[in-house]
Amino acid sequence: MSDGITATAEAQANTALDLTTLSVREANRALQSAKGGAFRLLNPGGKHALACGLSQPVSVSIEGHAGYYCAGMNQRAEVTVHGNAGTGLAENIMSGTVRVTGDASQSAGATGHGGLVVIAGNASARCGISMKGVDIVVGGDVGHMSAFMAQAGNLVVLGDAGPDLGDSIYEARLFVRGAVARLGTDCVEKEMRAEHLDLLRDLLARAGMQADPAEFRRYGSARRLYHFKVDNAGAY
């Protein structure tokens, strides 16, 4: 499902940072202190915390696999991983865009407050856990407990969703094109209205994904657990 990823950063990349000679700290310091411009991160080798804590509108192309927490807490920057990403991709992202051409491991986009995360392949368990406003678009499938306690934002899945999707969800919106193995506690299917089709069309366009919004179903909170009631105790 990598057809949706479009080249953004690499076309204009002009500064190469080679992790065979630079430490992660040195590379991150260069990226974090830049006010703008484009960078290529060469030989990432699955190292952790690559391009994390960026706060300026820089463009970063990671040319290989990234480890844990790649582009963590991103603000304004455009980061693209040309490969797979480990646990916690773009965790707590605030703004900007993080793209992965391959698959992402657990907790992709966890607790993200804003911005856009695009995973061309599959995402593992807990994709979008506790998301707080981020938009996440996954070209393939998502694993179990995705959007657990999701508070705000949108999760779009072009493939299937694993068990317990949207467990204990708050106000986030979930759009899934394929099958949902099982909905989590207090997560229900909701009517897809025109406004949701428009929202979904925009999300797909921004992610660069080709899909018909009419093929998706929408899920969200039944809001039964917002206040504790003894008669709902069995649901916890």
Partner: peptide, 29 residues
């Protein structure tokens, strides 16, 4: 609403992950 927040961190489980998480926090700061 009644807010019941999570008891586990969303992006790490166990001490090996925590070590990597702390590495990220150090990189950001």
């Amino acid at each position: 609403i009644d807010q019941r927040s999570a008891c586990r961190h969303p992006d790490w489980t166990g001490p090996d992950d925590l070590e990597i998480k702390i590495g990220e926090l150090r990189e950001i700061t």
